[in-house]
Design a protein around this nucleic acid. Sequence first.
DNA 1: AACGTTATGTAATAATATAACATTTATAAG
DNA 2: CTTATAAATGTTATATTATTACATAACGTT
Lengths: 132, 132
Amino acid sequence: MQKEYNLSKNQKIIFDLIDKSGGPMKAYSILFNVQKKGIKAPLQVYRALDKLVEIGKIHKIESRNAFIACQNSSCQISKATAFSICENCENVSEISNSKLSKYLSNFSDNSGMKYSKYNLEFFGLCKKCKSK
Amino acid sequence: MQKEYNLSKNQKIIFDLIDKSGGPMKAYSILFNVQKKGIKAPLQVYRALDKLVEIGKIHKIESRNAFIACQNSSCQISKATAFSICENCENVSEISNSKLSKYLSNFSDNSGMKYSKYNLEFFGLCKKCKSK
DNA sequence: AACGTTATGTAATAATATAACATTTATAAG
DNA sequence: CTTATAAATGTTATATTATTACATAACGTT
Ligand SMILES: [Zn+2]
Ligand SMILES: [Zn+2]
Ligand SMILES: [Zn+2]
Ligand SMILES: [Zn+2]
């Protein structure tokens, strides 16, 4: 059950854009797309992105410097994320696999470190690109 | 058994620096440190880094835009990497856990995607920082 | 030596992200 | 309703990270 946050004006504009795009978007591409709505500066975009990441509405794809809407309703905060990334077409999808997330959330090694968060990115070729 | 690559001059300078540092280094910090050795431009650094990543001598910590020497002798190419990152002191270490790597290398879901590579980053507090 | 490949040098610029400061809006307490 | 506080916004400038483009040199193979 996802807590409903009241997104602010800028946050809503930017979340809606990313969500509708259906894929990962980069910050300056977002900026370009929202300039007609009055958001003119990079910082306005980054501030909204920071907040949206914090509350789990979007995630950052670290290897791509891009942001994608959360595709997993149970993903309330971005503390356990996994993605599959096609190295050919750059299609990204969020992996929602309870075994995987359980395995990783419970992972511990002998380093004495307590892990509170992880991000996993798988790379390969998607179905489409494989068959070409 | 790690194949011996003959590193070029710039590659060797940059690898040695990162390796000796014992931790992650950022590209422009590397640049600053090797200027006395005649490497003057960002591109010279990035080219060496690209090659070193390709042959598995270093890895990129994506969430930090930083590079670390491979701490795992069997890690010939950077196709399966896992790190633990302290969010307080930014200490990074490479996780070398055969169960984990086996689990992830064999991971597949119903997306029809064949994964050839992954990168996993765990976040938390290291032993030192936890006890403060 | 001739060839193809890899690496280097150099300048310019693109792409990504943050600092600093002023102002406004939302939320909650009294 | 007023005051206090936190959250969000607006704006300018700047810092950080990474690549394009082009010319030259070194290396490995035949
Ligand atoms: Zn999610
Ligand atoms: Zn694809
Ligand atoms: Zn390694
Ligand atoms: Zn620490």
